[in-house]
Design a protein around this nucleic acid. Sequence first.
DNA 1: CCCAATTTCGAAAACGTTTTCGTCAGCGAT
DNA 2: ATCGCTGACGAAAACGTTTTCGAAATTGGG
Lengths: 352, 352
Amino acid sequence: MTTIYDIARQAGVSATTVSKVLNGYPDVSVKTREKVQQITAALGYQPSAAARGLVTRRSMSIGVFFQDRSSFGFRHPFLHDIIASFQDIVGESGYDLLFFSNVHSANTPHGFEARARHRDVDGLFLLGVPRTDPGLSSLSRSRIPIVSVDLDLIGSRASYLASDNIGGARNAVHFLYENGHRDIGFVGDRYGTKPGHDRTLGYHQALQELSLPYRAEWIQEGDFTEASGYAAMMKILALRERPTAIFFVSDMMAIGAMRAIREAGLTPGEDISLIGFDDVHLAQYVTPALTTIRQNKDEMGRLAAIELLELMRNPNKPPSVITVETELVVRDSVKNLLNVDQHRSGKVAGIS
Amino acid sequence: MTTIYDIARQAGVSATTVSKVLNGYPDVSVKTREKVQQITAALGYQPSAAARGLVTRRSMSIGVFFQDRSSFGFRHPFLHDIIASFQDIVGESGYDLLFFSNVHSANTPHGFEARARHRDVDGLFLLGVPRTDPGLSSLSRSRIPIVSVDLDLIGSRASYLASDNIGGARNAVHFLYENGHRDIGFVGDRYGTKPGHDRTLGYHQALQELSLPYRAEWIQEGDFTEASGYAAMMKILALRERPTAIFFVSDMMAIGAMRAIREAGLTPGEDISLIGFDDVHLAQYVTPALTTIRQNKDEMGRLAAIELLELMRNPNKPPSVITVETELVVRDSVKNLLNVDQHRSGKVAGIS
DNA sequence: CCCAATTTCGAAAACGTTTTCGTCAGCGAT
DNA sequence: ATCGCTGACGAAAACGTTTTCGAAATTGGG
């Protein structure tokens, strides 16, 4: 390995001086500066991150705890998009991303915090970690900057970011209402995730705001997967009195429900209207194309990155709760009960 | 930070001894060993990866160069699945994954190799890197273990893994043939990626094997995206003599083509048969459900991991070329021209 | 020219480990 | 008693940086 000493020798200066030009210190003459730079380039020298990190206590890397297939066994492409956007931003500031393996805390005896310390990461990004994970408690007391998404982690240096799930859910119900629907069912989240909880809240709020009746038999629960949406729909289809529209807390469940509806000999979007949440890639390709509440993934990643950068830069920055707006995407899966001459728009509203 | 010296002091031994018990050296008595272990646990001590890495020259991390939106601007969920599977395996051996930011080598002046050296990664995993990237040349000469997927990187320590793209493409064409199709079009890859190239090769081979005519006007090119599939299909639809079936080198292009076919007033899977490649998640939800050649993502990740682990463990291991088998997934998008009483299977062949 | 101020440079300590090698004690065999 | 082993331990060097602080060299003002 070529070290700082090799350069020093060739340049006829001390290692200290080399270090200084590499780090942009001002107290070195232009002449030696240029000489050192030239030799550095010629040798293709790269500083050792380990050695540097040892003394600076920083690694220029951000630790990521990312539970892809969460406890209920599905993969959420959604989170990948957030991460990609996140990395774009922090990458501009020179940070690389360290993805911890074996994320379930069972395998990481000392929990998230210890592993972060071990690697000397400068910050932490949490996605898809179940809020019940016991390893989280050590994090809330940690002094390492953290941003988590969809996980209401509170701590002195931990900010938390999520879509406006309550507002989004309310918009979904209001949209159905505006299209003449009064009997509105709901398929929620069995696991009590934070987003699931908030969307349920939004549903209930909207019901109240619109003076719509709460019908327990129209409420089902699922686990965000296509299969669970199918199962939930089956139960609703078995009812003698059915809702005219249903709000699903995830697109995949709505898509599963479409299958159930079709199997019952009915037409989704015609006999029963559906609206989802997320706007997964699939939503626009399914028939009928799914009307949904889009989560702005790029914006989520971007804001998470900006927040974490700021937390890392400024040790006195207090944590925040960041909410990013959702957006109604109208496609073809909810029927307008008021207007006969409704037109089905094949276009995606708001897509640029 | 609690260091090895803190433990040593409390245990009344030297730092050397502590280090030895932490690393399982045999020359320490059971008594002191247990004492040290107990104190270590009590203090929640975690060794500094930087300090350790500085002396051992290993980091217990694997660098990942992963170009998500590749030069032609699409995201491939496919690669995420491979990475997840890869990480599961290497994680068992204690490796974490370091994702480099700013992957396009323009931003990484000294290229992949220098960045890997900088971080002291023990191995490298490459996905989605265009084979034209100038930064690759330094890698082929590198002595750091590398596994790349879909990129025929050769080097003394670099193995390369891909689906059996030739065989898969041949199977696709043969399957169309078995269903009575003789006029078989092709939508290939404009960018000359290695997989695209191999699938084109497979198409040509199959044509020869089956003594089918090569019709230049039935060959189009795209960039793997839905939009480009749509465009390619438009051109083919404009022809006076159309093929009865088309093989697309990616599912997304086939899905785009479906849209074009429908807009032309025809029915995909009925008037024109389609077969794709990849088996993306979407494929089973689109109508008609897309018949395709599945790439075994889990297996790819798993084999890549095993190969890299072995390269890292054994400095003398020669590199290999690893091919993983594809699998025909029959759905509803190719019509059987031979049998009138064909049955459309809604089931996905081979899904567990 | 002299002194003070300013530039420019380098010695040395520090960061937290691992690893080599030597020391020392104890012990069994002669 | 002596010798040689073995088992247990520690001193010290090394890994490649950064950073502090003092020394030396240069400059500028009078």
